[in-house]
Design a protein around this nucleic acid. Structure first.
Length: 736
DNA sequence: CCCTGGCCGCTTTTT
DNA sequence: GCGGCCAGGG
């Protein structure tokens, strides 16, 4: 593809800081590829002096692939990585500076949970008072802002809750260090520490990276921003590419401010906008532009295309989620009859929980499909068990994984004994593995000493087996054989044993692939992949099937035909977001991302009632549909009476939620008679300092109250849910 | 030590 | 609807 003028500028502007504001489908990857190619062909840098950081493995892989196509084999020398794999690479090499070995373990969220529960137990902090989830979230947020244990404790001086979290934070990090393990946030945090505290390491990388490029810059956290600044600190040739309208990870610590304030932070930075879209039709772009225009906090841009108007955006209101699934299935079959491929279609939704119904219907209709996300392959129980064996063989200090397999398959080591082992491990600061090996030395483990020692010997045996030159496939077979894992599966739950066995065997073929790609592939490489790879990465667009995934997972992808299901208030936007402007704007950006995935045809579907989490709820049509100009949409709802011109803007609308009742004048009226969230104008007066209780957020204290129309906007600091903005008349707060 | 059954609470998005 | 957690019985 020939570059347009803006793209060409972005490619050739190689020196100094550069911000590329790239709209959806504006040829961002093309620019990145050509920029690297330009730098290398001009002789400005050697391949290994170029660092290109992306957010997902898929994006990194794609980038690398296209670079190899453009530049040949030498492109493999380019540092094209994700944040996490790039940092892991630096830490494997220099991690001893921070007290880690070169083969540290990466803990996923489940491992994290287990460690935290253990810490809470040790510290006597009940989950009922302070639940592990909020502790983990708070620690994670701290690390994203580069706040270490010490600083966190200092900031928590007079706050009981925070000081308890500080205790957990401290012990948690201690346990992780002892286990030679890092969680996702540690990987970034520690990489920054490594560079900040070690001048020689910093200089090493600053000298190496003549050019640094960052993709999806809108999704970077503060820690990632600092990391990038450090890495680019030598030459200051830093190019960041992003789209503030596609920032959808704020909830996880991403700060759009990184992009909004790039020009202040990097003086004399150039800014280039890419607004020409090469993906979608004008109708789809008009829709996307109209929706995102409702956001206040954005740089502002307008996508346009040289392609024609194309088909209109199809709107359909159905009665329930089953009708929704059937409609989608029928449309797909119709489209396929008319010459489309299965793989031209994607079904997107807000939450993974929505995929169930769709999957059942697609299966019934004989439509080949693949679900991305939900439960990851590596999150399956049997895979986690086997991977835990590998992990302990690789790193016996890995207490979490050791605990997982200590009694799986059952070998007579119960939970009491496991707890004793952990207690000694924490108390003496030695690994649980060592406690097992020396179990005859401790009073509390004496009773099961033989079993524990046998277990340790088993792990030693696997280590020797591997050291004697066994391949990973052979080790897998040895583990299955020696532990009797298949027999355990067959006994434990005969119904699913066969599936689980197949999954485990899938690991063998995975090993074969790895080895074919890279002859030096080792156990630790495998474990790193397990930790950092998600299944979107293995999504293969050449397979002819329909894909189902969340809107988040779909970022960066495109499809000729896109269905977005569940376009309903409370689903999308999520019910948890409608009280805060910031959260709502993020939902709207997510809608923007979703809409712009479609190249030719977009369907937006909403159901009047939907069964979710076991109960049926009624939802109004999503405000994002109402924000579309009528000129670009076509409503094919079967019973038209149900959709008159948009009247209310949802729960916030002056006219209130009842408007929906007026819409269904026929027999359906009964069904719609009761809308669950009508305003309850109780006339209660709230004032700052009041303690209140909310149905879902729990108890909290009002920290601000300001009049807004004939309602009051309250800001409430909840004990568990954080600070939320609520409208007094709608929130149904109970004063206590 | 291990299994079962019942109850409770949650229920957004993911590198 | 599901998974985690606990209590009680084998």
């Amino acid at each position: 593809m020939a570059l347009n003028e803006m793209q060409r500028q972005a490619v050739e502007c190689t020196e100094g800081p550069l911000l590329v504001l790239a709209g959806a489908g504006s040829g961002k990857t093309t620019v990145l590829v050509n920029r690297v190619r330009y730098i290398i062909e001009k002789g400005l840098a050697l391949p290994w002096q170029v660092l290109a950081i992306t957010f997902t493995n898929k994006a990194a892989g794609e980038l690398k692939e296209r670079l190899v196509k453009a530049l040949g084999e030498e492109a493999n020398e380019i540092w094209a990585f994700t944040f996490h794999s790039c940092c892991a690479r630096m830490l494997r090499r220099f991690g001893e500076r921070l007290g880690y070995t070169g083969h540290f373990t990466i803990y996923d969220t489940d491992d994290q949970r287990r460690v935290m529960k253990h810490c809470q137990k040790s510290l006597g902090i009940s989950d009922k008072i302070l639940n592990h989830k909020s502790i983990i979230n708070e620690i994670s947020a701290a690390k994203d802002s580069l706040i270490g244990v010490k600083e966190y404790r200092e900031s928590s001086a007079n706050d009981f809750r925070k000081s308890k979290i500080a205790d957990c934070y401290e012990l948690y990090q201690k346990e992780l260090l002892k286990a030679d393990a890092m969680d996702f946030d540690d990987i970034i945090f520690n990489a920054v520490r490594l560079l900040e505290e070690n001048g020689d390491v910093r200089e090493h990388y600053q000298k190496q990276f003549k050019y640094v490029m960052v993709d999806e810059y809108q999704d970077t956290s503060h820690a990632q921003y600092v990391l990038v600044s450090l890495l680019a600190g030598g030459y200051e040739n830093i190019c960041v590419v992003g789209d503030d309208d596609q920032s959808i990870y704020r909830f996880r610590g991403a700060t759009v401010e990184n992009i909004l304030s790039f020009e202040q932070r990097f003086k004399n930075a150039k800014v280039i906008r890419l607004e020409q879209n090469y993906r979608s039709t004008q109708n789809i772009l008009d829709g996307a532009n109209a929706v995102i225009a409702n956001n206040k906090n954005r740089k502002g841009k307008n996508l346009w295309t040289a392609a024609g108007a194309g088909e209109k955006i199809i709107l359909n209101t159905v009665n329930n989620e089953n009708e929704e699934s059937s409609f989608i299935a029928q449309e797909i079959l119709k489209n396929v009859e008319n010459g489309r491929k299965m793989s031209d279609h994607a079904i997107l939704y807000r939450m993974n929980a929505q995929s169930r119904n769709l999957e059942i219907t697609l299966t019934k209709s004989g439509i080949p499909h693949k679900i991305i996300g939900g439960n990851r392959f590596f999150d399956r129980r049997e895979i986690k068990d086997i991977v835990s064996y590998f992990a302990v063989v690789n790193n016996p200090a890995d207490n979490v994984r050791l605990q997982r397999i200590l009694n799986v398959p059952k070998r007579g080591i119960g939970s009491t004994m496991a707890a004793n082992v952990m207690e000694i491990s924490t108390g003496l600061g030695i690994s649980a593995f060592e406690v097992c090996e020396r179990s005859d030395e401790f009073q509390k483990t004496l009773r099961s000493a033989q079993k524990l020692k046998d277990f340790a010997a088993l792990i030693r045996h696997f280590q020797n087996f591997l050291n004697d030159g066994a391949t990973l496939t052979e080790l897998l077979e040895e583990i299955i054989k020696e532990t009797g894992y298949f027999e355990y599966l067959a006994e434990d739950e005969p119904e699913s044993a066969e599936d689980r066995k197949n999954n485990i065997n899938e690991l063998s073929s995975m090993f074969e692939n790895y080895i074919q790609e890279d002859g030096d592939f080792e156990l630790s490489d495998f474990l790193e992949d397990v930790a950092l790879v998600s299944d979107i990465d293995s999504y293969n667009e050449n397979e002819d099937c329909v894909v189902l995934m969340t809107l988040h997972s779909a970022k960066g992808l495109e499809f000729p035909v896109v269905f977005i299901s569940g376009m309903e208030e409370g689903i999308f936007p999520s019910s948890l977001s409608v009280y805060s402007t910031e959260d709502l704007e993020e939902e709207r950006r997510l809608a923007y991302v979703g809409i712009t995935r479609a190249k030719e045809k977009l369907y937006l579907i909403n159901a009047r009632t939907r069964m979710l989490y076991g109960t049926t709820g009624r939802n109004m049509i999503s405000r994002f549909i109402r924000e579309l100009p009528e000129s670009v949409t076509e409503d094919i709802t079967a019973d038209v009476y149900s959709r008159q011109s948009p009247v209310s803007v949802g729960r916030f609308g002056r006219s209130g939620a009842e408007t929906i009742i007026n819409r269904s004048s026929s027999s359906a009226a009964g069904k719609f008679g009761q809308v669950n969230s009508s305003p309850s104008n109780t006339g209660t007066v709230y004032s700052v300092g009041d303690t209140v209780r909310h149905k879902t957020f729990g108890t909290g204290i009002i920290i601000s109250a300001s009049a807004m129309g004939n309602d009051t906007l309250l800001e409430v600091a909840f004990d568990r849910a954080g600070t939320k903005k609520l409208m007094a008349n709608f929130a149904k707060l109970e004063k206590i």
